[in-house]
Design a protein around this nucleic acid. Structure first.
Length: 497
RNA sequence: GGUCCUGUGGCCGAGUGGCUAGGCUCAGCUCUGCAAAAGCUGCUACACCAGUUCGAAUCUGGUCGGGACCUCCA
């Protein structure tokens, strides 16, 4: 199964066989969020996409080191020149220390992802914690002759780089075309070419977040952090680099250039990009202001939300589409996802308790046996084909149908072997829980259930049905609770014994 | 304007030369104290035009529509 895994590589624009540089080890770097605002559905898609990849590779027994960064500095507003640091801007706006902003939104992001059952990456480095590495890498690029110092800032020399390499190999862009299409912006005088991007920016005195460097006081450019941190934790060359499709250009293109220029190698073997979530046909994003935060989804507190959607519903919704397709948000689609998710969980509940139990002599029917085997294998087929969770989920639903059939007609067990049943059961549970990360969400109406039981208890008391009373008390006890009989009412309490 | 992606049934969404995707919705049936669940059946699916082919939703060309990137963005 391991050898059959195929992934779509944005660099080659083809599906390729997945062969790690040094199996069984896999290094994966994914661009995480800039923590200057609440995490939204788009963040969830990226996180879940690479969570699945992380989980599936681990499931295939690769030893994966998954690095996902937190950008807490260096992201500029507007354009790359006279823009303001996003974090600093937000900090001013909220009258907070920049690190307060970072802390708040980092924890918001992590908490939301935890609710979505996204596993934590192996390493989650922050840009501000890697300033020396970024300075060092910048120096290496200067030394290699691909960057220049200008007015206290350092810029990557795109045209120079393009003489010996190809700037645009990932995004399919051509430098000449980029030049003609470039708008003239203010503050470009420092740069030799408008395509040049900052590796290090000179900080003005009022700038809040700044560090010392060989070129004066400043802060790192946006693209350099990912190259510096991926290099630090995964080496100069690693297996997978991921991120949102919107990061492909210029961010990932620049990463390649930085790595090739400063570290003399292509950073990643496979480049994977998840597509966007759209709302009314348009990309959901910060810039358009049409995003829905994860908390809003969970609480339903947003004008366009008709109701609240549980984290697992969101996860299921995202997994029902392939990660490279755009996925359109709508209440209707979310409601459908919610029901589909519950159907899958109901199947899981039945299967968990289901044992191989033929009622007559076993007489394996070749056709039914093969059908069951195919059903089980098709569940893997989806994930193995560029992590196509949509296909895997469709297959899982076919298994659910089979589960119901077996539950209704246990005599069908006679026609299948124990081995293939157990294999099906194990596969279903493993893929659903461990790989897709879809867990059961406990019903949240326990209060109602307890009230109902107390009502029943009261009835039993009135009827002096002591057997019934004892039984109900035992149920409460089993839940760490006890019933309190009072003169005028009945209530429950936590058992203190 | 440039580069790229995309258009699938009431809705969402896989597929990519011949084989039922799947989920949700709606209608009918079986089961059923009622209901739900489950099962079965059905609801003019592949934007349009032309071509390649024994055969195309799937390949090629064109038309129309939608989107992404080119500026911060998952």
């Amino acid at each position: 199964m391991k050898s059959a895994l195929k992934v779509y590589n944005s660099l080659s624009r083809k599906k390729e066989k997945f062969e790690p540089i040094s199996a069984p080890y896999v290094g994966m770097y994914v661009c995480g969020p800039t923590v200057y605002g609440e995490a939204h559905l788009g963040h969830a898609r990226s996180a879940i996409t690479f969570d699945i990849i992380f989980r599936f590779l681990s499931h295939l027994e690769y030893k994966v080191r998954y690095v996902r960064n937190i950008t807490d500095v260096g992201h500029l507003e507007h354009d790359a020149d006279d823009g303001e640091d996003k974090i600093a801007k937000r900090a001013k706006l909220e009258k907070l220390e920049p690190m307060e902003v970072v802390k708040r939104y980092t924890s918001y992001y992590q908490t939301s992802l935890r609710k979505l059952n996204v596993n934590e990456p192996s390493i989650e480095p922050v840009a501000s914690g890697h300033i020396p590495e970024q300075i060092k890498l910048t120096q290496q690029i200067i030394d290699a002759g691909f960057a220049y110092v200008s007015n206290g800032s350092v810029y990557f020399d795109v045209l120079k780089y393009n003489e010996s390499h190809r700037y645009g190999e990932l995004s399919g862009r051509v430098v000449d075309e980029l030049l003609t299409g470039t708008r003239t912006l203010d503050g470009q005088e420092e740069k030799r070419s408008p395509l040049d991007f900052a590796l290090w920016k000179n900080a003005s005195p009022e700038h809040i977040m700044k560090w010392e460097s060989p070129w004066g006081i400043g802060f790192p450019g946006w693209h350099i952090e990912c190259t510096a941190m991926s290099n630090k934790y995964l080496g100069t060359r690693f297996d997978i680099h991921g991120g949102g499709l919107d990061l492909l250009f210029p961010h990932h293109e620049c990463e390649i250039a930085q790595s090739v220029a400063g570290l003399k190698t292509q950073p990643a073997k496979y480049w994977l990009h998840n597509n966007m979530i759209t709302i009314n046909g348009q990309k959901m994003g910060k810039s358009l202001g049409n995003f829905i935060t994860l908390d809003q989804l969970f609480s339903g507190d947003h004008p366009i939300l008709e109701k609240a959607y549980s984290p697992m519903t969101i996860r299921f919704f995202i997994l029902q589409a392939h990660y490279r397709s755009t996925l359109d948000f709508s209440n209707e689609a979310l409601v459908a996802a919610s029901k589909g998710y519950k159907k899958l969980m109901n199947g899981l509940r039945i299967l968990r308790k289901m044992e191989y139990s033929p009622i007559d002599t076993i007489n394996v029917d070749e056709k039914q046996e093969q059908e069951l085997i195919n059903l089980t294998e098709s569940c893997y087929g989806g994930l193995s084909d560029d992590f196509n969770t949509a296909i895997t989920i469709a297959s899982l639903f076919n298994v659910v149908k089979k589960i119901h059939t077996l539950q209704l007609n246990p005599s069908l067990f006679n026609n299948i072997s124990k081995e293939s049943f157990e294999n099906m059961k194990q596969t279903f549970i493993a893929l659903t829980n461990e790989v897709l990360g879809l867990l059961e969400e406990a019903p949240n109406n326990n209060e109602v259930l307890i009230e109902g039981l107390l009502e029943w208890y009261k009835q039993a008391k009135e009827n002096k049905d002591y057997d019934q009373i004892d039984r109900i008390r035992a149920w409460f006890k089993a839940c760490g609770m006890q019933i309190k009989d009072m003169k005028t009412s009945i209530d429950w309490a936590y058992e203190e014994a």
